[in-house]
Design a protein around this nucleic acid. Structure first.
Lengths: 198, 198
DNA sequence: GCAGGGCTAGAACGATCGCTCTAGTTCGGT
DNA sequence: ACCGAACTAGAGCGATCGTTCTAGCCCTGC
């Protein structure tokens, strides 16, 4: 029993393939710009399969995609922060790493949560909620690192807010400008801001 | 001759009404989530008028909407920064003002440029370019203020990058979380960061 | 007072949208 | 061996998408 499906191990593979494809497509095209039929084709699944696994339709697909992006970035964030004992150095390395990833995709793959959630306030509230949870989780990861580095709880919480917000904004700016500069500058400034609390 | 149209003053009004409506709709629903027919109905113009003024179709509408958002926010930014002699205080007041505007719209009206540009990398490159110009202009406004306050050109340019990126990210975070906290915290942190360069 | 261009008006095009539906296939449990 | 659940398969629903088109209104310049 390596998967959650009781009968067919390949089945869980199909579901996951659909979610990963949805996340990738919405990352580039946004929620409204991505069609369910396109998802089914690129995931190598039929439309019937998509609606079998996601009876909630497109909104459920979007929510699942946001949650996947949530988990993946939370993991990436935790690893990047734990790689360096000092949060200042970790933040600089983190932004450099984000900039590399962005450039490697020809500036197409920004934050999967951001691009999916924009414009869904009224049409897909479930996506909005999932995105709020993602941001909160990422803030918690940053706050934990800062608290472990000797910052008070209040300072860590507030700094985590700005770290996540600045990373989001800088990634968007870098994507639009097709340049690593916004991310790299943001990394140095975040390090400086954090250091000012010592 | 109060308008640019040679024959009919009301004509320029129609064009502007279409652009304003496009900007408002794409701010809430994104580029792909906004239909040309919806724009024509809500602007009180016919489809023929829309394509008369914007023969480039939806992409030209999106580009014009981004440029309008560009000008409006650049003006708002300049006024907010000039209202206070010290950039630190101006930044705090600016974020408070942005948070108020966001709350007044029930957290629906975020940055019009951000929501319009997301997901248009491959489908509407013109929109992408207009957004890049908007960010660059806003950075120039911030850099000018900082330079006028005694910062060196290099510091002002770099700080402007982070100020704009953080404002973008914090506005998005505030919108998703339906809370003024991300923006207010960002304002205080940006002020602290700027002060650290004195 | 008439000619002509700027603009309005809305029907209609093919394509695609999200989604539903029925039929068929596959497979473990008994 | 066979029943029923899990899943696949894809045709097709009404609606809407972005866009084009022709017809006509209205105002200005002559």
């Amino acid at each position: 029993m390596k998967t959650k499906a009781p009968h067919d191990p390949e089945t869980a593979g199909t579901r996951e393939r659909i979610v990963r494809t949805t996340s990738r497509l919405m990352q580039r095209q946004g929620y409204e710009g991505t069609g369910v039929k396109q998802i089914s084709v690129e995931a190598g699944a039929t439309l019937g399969s998509v609606y079998h696994f996601f009876p909630g339709g497109k909104q459920e697909l979007g929510t699942a995609a946001v949650r996947l992006g949530d988990e993946e970035f939370a993991e990436f964030l935790a690893e990047a922060l734990d790689a360096e004992p000092e949060p200042e150095k970790a933040l600089v390395a983190l932004t450099v790493s984000l900039a590399e990833g962005l450039r490697d995709s020809d500036w197409l793959d920004g934050c999967p949560v951001t691009s999916t959630v924009v414009g869904t306030a009224d049409s897909a509230p479930g996506v909005q909620e999932a995105a709020a949870e993602a941001f909160a989780r990422w803030r918690a990861v940053v706050a934990r690192k800062l608290a472990a580095s000797g910052f008070t709880g209040a300072d860590a919480e507030e700094l985590a807010h700005t770290v996540i917000a600045t990373l989001e904004g800088a990634e968007l700016a870098a994507q639009v400008a097709r340049s690593a500069t916004p991310l790299e500058v943001a990394g140095r400034h975040l390090a400086r801001l954090v250091a000012s609390y010592r």
